[in-house]
Deep mutational scan, measured.
Amino acid sequence: MDALKSAGRALIRSPSLAKQSWGGGGRHRKLPENWTDTRETLLEGMLFSLKYLGMTLVEQPKGEELSAAAIKRIVATAKASGKKLQKVTLKVSPRGIILTDNLTNQLIENVSIYRISYCTADKMHDKVFAYIAQSQHNQSLECHAFLCTKRKMAQAVTLTVAQAFKVAFEFWQVSKEEKEKRDKASQEGGDVLGARQDCTPPLKSLVATGNLLDLEETAKAPLSTVSANTTNMDEVPRPQALSGSSVVWELDDGLDEAFSRLAQSRTNPQVLDTGLTAQDMHYAQCLSPVDWDKPDSSGTEQDDLFSF
């Protein structure tokens, strides 16, 4: 819950932080000083300027060897085509990944977070970031790969997607708890209302004896509580940590079903599988986004697919 609360507080303090972009060759504004600060901008989305290598189908939802083989196929196909790589912007948030063309600003792909089953910074092609997700059109699994400016960037994108998945799962947990509370309150309110109706004398007997209905007592009954809980029953509950912020979080049926399955089948359902080692994760978390744009010590960066 700490990640969720800190993310909400950060967004309320400075929503404009989320509009910064990394990996864009110096076009961005001043960047936060450390990885923790940038992680807090996830709610509205972190932007990464990358190059799209392509996509291939895979048979399993996750796995280092599986993704490595898929990336190898994608890279080989991209090299064989001889075409310049498409420059894209990857927007990562707890909602998922939005992929747009840098030149036309046209939407290429919009992947809900619950469809993503794996992401990684490839070991062999260490400047490549990739994720595996279920197609929104059918049940097939797709591996999408992107060329980053350097290994640090690939690791940073991988960690960002993993963190977005974690925050999304926490949102789901909060929403589920809130819905259970509202359902319980609604049920209790309905029981109270039913009890009051059972003990209320029939209207005919009131008229016969000349008694008047006590409207004041009726007004004191917990009807307002019942209506408050039943009027918006169809509205999706939102985490309290975000009250007053500009973010509107809505959970669709697909996300609810997917996270429910994860909660039942996995020990740590909030953790998205990645190909990063503990050492890689520690190294990337210690980086400032400013470091992502620094040239690798191995030599001059080449803006070309064939540089790796």
Rank of each mutant, 00 (worst) to 15 (best):
K62Y: 02
C286G: 13
Q197W: 01
G244P: 06
Y52P: 08
R196P: 12
L215F: 07
N229H: 09
G244W: 07
T231V: 05
R39M: 03
L57P: 13
P295G: 14
L242M: 13
L47G: 01
L141P: 15
L193Q: 12
E250G: 08
T225C: 04
S140G: 14
A10V: 15
S21E: 08
K127M: 00
G26F: 05
G299D: 00
L206H: 06
R115D: 04
D101E: 14
E142V: 15
K83Y: 04
T56Y: 04
I113G: 03
T41R: 04
T267H: 08
A145L: 00
Q264N: 08
Q86G: 08
Q302H: 15
I12Q: 13
I12W: 12
Q106G: 05
Q187D: 02
A208S: 13
P202N: 05
D291Y: 15
G210Y: 06
G45S: 08
L50Q: 01
V88R: 01
Q302A: 08
R196L: 08
K176F: 08
K127H: 01
Q20P: 08
F306D: 01
G254E: 14
K204E: 15
N232D: 09
S307D: 07
I98K: 03
N138H: 15
D293W: 02
D273S: 03
P289C: 09
R39L: 04
A133G: 13
T100M: 09
S297P: 09
Q270M: 06
A278H: 10
M46Y: 10
Y118D: 02
E180G: 15
T149S: 15
L159K: 10
H137P: 10
A164Y: 07
L141Y: 13
D37A: 12
G194Q: 03
A241I: 09
Q20V: 11
S307L: 04
I98F: 06
L17F: 11
D291G: 11
V88A: 05
L53N: 01
V236Q: 14
A258F: 02
I74E: 01
G254Q: 07
K204N: 07
A18Q: 08
L50F: 03
L43A: 15
S205V: 06
K123D: 05
D183T: 11
T225S: 07
A258V: 03
G63V: 10
Q173D: 03
I71L: 00
D37K: 08
S297D: 05
N110H: 06
Q270T: 04
D126W: 00
R196G: 03
E178L: 14
G189I: 01
A10Y: 04
R196N: 08
G8D: 09
K166Y: 09
S265Q: 06
E216Q: 07
T274Y: 05
K79R: 05
G24H: 07
K166A: 15
K184D: 10
L141G: 03
R9W: 15
E64N: 06
D296V: 06
L4R: 14
M153Q: 07
A219V: 13
W22R: 05
T120M: 07
G190V: 04
D303N: 07
T41M: 12
A130P: 00
L85Q: 00
Q163G: 14
D293Y: 06
A10P: 14
T267V: 04
T230H: 03
S93L: 15
Q20F: 12
S16M: 14
D183M: 09
V75K: 00
A228L: 03
A164W: 09
D234E: 10
P295I: 09
E170N: 08
N110T: 13
V192E: 05
G299F: 08
K30M: 15
D2V: 07
K72A: 07
K19L: 13
N138K: 15
G8P: 13
L223I: 05
W22I: 06
K294D: 07
D296N: 11
T274I: 08
S224T: 11
K30H: 08
A284Y: 11
L242C: 03
A208I: 07
L85D: 01
V75Q: 00
F146P: 00
G26P: 10
L159G: 12
V88H: 01
L50C: 01
F169G: 03
L223G: 09
S205Q: 07
E178M: 15
H137Y: 14
G275P: 04
K152W: 14
L42V: 14
A185T: 12
L262P: 05
V207L: 07
A263Y: 07
N232K: 07
S14C: 02
T267W: 08
L57W: 10
